[in-house]
């Protein structure tokens, strides 16, 4: 089932006589149960994009459909009810400094006028879930950044939402804390079956938890798909540079320099995912085909609990032996692309 859908969304800001196009022709689908990542450099429009989902920003054109309902057709009070189905966490946590951790987590329930006993039970349950039961009576300023974000997550979950929006939720945290917050988001997704949408500029965040990703640049989605596909063969230069921040994807310069190119040698980029990645295919290749294989570069990355292998191989062989070898690899599930080294 589609949880979030955007259809040809446009968003323009008018200030004095200057019109800025923040979003152009955005089409996007987030399925129920997804952890959907949106990545882009700052100013790409990703923060605006995520705010469309709970209508903190309204589109200039196009439709936003959440859980089968079109937001634009909703009255203010219906929209407020819908927002209770959508939790949100922020880069700077946005907790109430004047209230205890307990009261911070309780606030969405207080707004919904839930009975006191029910609030207490739910809040304690959530504090247990985020591992901060002992901090119920503390104030936000007594907590570390990671703890504050945990409280933010508990607060966002209080009203049992179907969707959790994360706006640069780990950008203010150190790498280790980022890891633990990402693991918590994974648990939120799995244990509560909440669809998660993550906005980030860190490819490692996408690699760690997302199953699908959209890459944004200058208000447009330039590439989207499963994380494995996008990491495996990024198309757009921006996507490539993002992927490179976590996966080395090029033949090292030192190898390039010593590389001997002959007339019958060809260089291919091999990309293989999943189970076939663990098979000894290179070994089989050398045994069964009349080709010389030189591994120029190899990288193995774990994404989405499967393995992604990227290799640069130099083949040397007579006649169509190279072709046959390539054919074999393709049959084994590899994506082969000839490159000039």
């Amino acid at each position: 089932m589609t949880m979030i859908e955007m259809r040809s969304i446009h968003k323009t800001y008018k200030r004095k006589n200057i019109t800025t196009e923040a979003l152009k022709e955005i089409n996007l689908q987030v399925e129920e149960g997804d952890i959907f990542g949106v990545i882009g450099y700052s100013g790409a429009g990703k923060s605006t994009l995520v705010r469309l989902v709970n209508y903190l920003e309204r589109p200039t054109g196009g439709k936003v459909i959440v859980d089968g309902q079109e937001l634009d057709k909703m009255s203010d009070s219906k929209l407020r009810a819908m927002k209770k189905q959508i939790g949100m966490i922020f880069q700077h946590f946005n907790l109430l400094e004047s209230k205890t951790i307990f009261d911070n987590v309780a606030i969405p329930l207080i707004l919904s006028k839930k009975p006191k006993a029910e609030i207490k039970k739910r809040v304690m349950e959530l504090l247990e879930f985020i591992g901060l039961s002992d901090k119920a009576k503390s104030y936000p300023k007594e907590l570390s950044g990671g703890q504050k974000q945990r409280v933010g997550i508990a607060r966002a979950l209080a009203s049992n939402p179907k969707i959790l929006l994360c706006d640069e939720a780990t950008s203010a945290l150190d790498p280790q804390t980022t890891q633990s917050i990402l693991q918590l988001l994974k648990r939120v997704n799995q244990e509560y079956n909440i669809t998660v949408m993550i906005i980030t500029h860190e490819m490692s965040v996408i690699q760690e938890v997302c199953n699908r990703v959209a890459v944004m640049e200058a208000g447009e989605i330039i590439e989207q798909g499963s994380v494995l596909d996008v990491f495996g063969h990024p198309q757009h230069p921006t996507t490539k540079s993002f992927v490179q921040t976590v996966i080395h994807n090029n033949i090292p310069e030192s190898v390039k320099r010593t590389l001997k190119q002959t007339d019958n040698s060809r260089v291919f980029r091999l990309e293989i995912q999943g189970d076939s990645a663990s098979e000894p295919i290179v070994n089989q290749l050398m045994k069964n085909y009349e080709v010389e294989v030189n591994i120029l570069f190899a990288n193995m990355t774990e994404i989405q609990e499967t393995t992604l292998v990227i290799m640069y191989l130099q083949f040397e062989g007579a006649g169509n032996d190279v072709e046959k070898a390539i054919q074999f690899l393709v049959e084994k599930g590899a994506n082969m692309e000839e490159v000039t080294a």
């Binding site: 709970n54 819908m82 927002k83 209770k84 959508i86 939790g87 946005n94 606030i107």
Partner: peptide
Amino acid sequence: NPGIIEAAESMGATPFQVIWHF
């Protein structure tokens, strides 16, 4: 902090609730 107001609005707080609770 304007972020607090944004958080309040994301929770579906009414304008009165935003003033009173945040």
